[in-house]
């Protein structure tokens, strides 16, 4: 299973996460909706990244993120009928490993890719992408393949 994106998009993801530090950064991954989105090991192509504000209250922004459902609904609506959609999300773990936390697992949706960036002291040091299993019990890591322009 792979998540493909142009190298410039990876730069956009890590850049947004670095500037959010010490808070968690988050945003949407957009692209064509694959034929068998729910199939474990499906490939995904991300062609656009949309950073969004972290909607969690100020008390815990350094270890939590929240995406405003209204903003999300707006983007879904905008892409309706185009064959493209919100195929995943990215967020950062400031000073923590790029592995999903139990809270990530509890809140995760099926099919989508969850791209997690580890930011240590303001610098992105690791990026890993994950897909939740349909039974909701764990995540499986997928390879991030960066395409040159």
């Amino acid at each position: 299973m792979t998540l493909k994106a142009r190298r410039a998009l990876e730069g956009a993801v890590t850049g947004a996460c670095e500037s959010a530090y010490p808070d968690e950064g988050c945003g949407l991954l957009l692209g064509p909706v694959p034929d068998a989105f729910d199939r474990p090991g499906r490939a995904l192509f991300v062609d656009e990244v949309r950073p969004l504000p972290n909607g969690w209250d100020a008390s815990a922004k350094t270890n939590r993120y929240l995406i405003d459902p209204r903003l999300l609904a707006k983007v879904e609506n905008e892409l309706s009928g185009t064959g493209r959609g919100v195929v995943g999300f990215y967020h950062s773990h400031p000073d923590h490993p790029a592995w999903p936390s139990p809270f990530d697992l509890m809140m995760a949706w099926p099919c989508l890719s969850y791209w997690i960036v580890r930011v240590d002291g303001g610098k992105a040091v690791d990026g890993r992408s994950w897909q939740r299993t349909e039974d909701g019990r764990s995540f499986v890591e997928e390879e991030i393949v960066l395409l040159e322009e």
Binding site: E24, C26, W56, A60, T62, N63, R64, Y65, L66, I67, P69, R70, L72, A73, E76, F89, H91, H93, P94, D95, H96, P100, S101, P102, F103, D104, M107, A108, W109, Y114
Partner: peptide, 14 residues
């Protein structure tokens, strides 16, 4: 009727 994911998560409290 709109079903919208609440997208949240994050690292564990330091």
């Amino acid at each position: 009727v709109l079903i919208v994911p609440a997208i949240a998560g994050g690292a564990t409290l330091a």
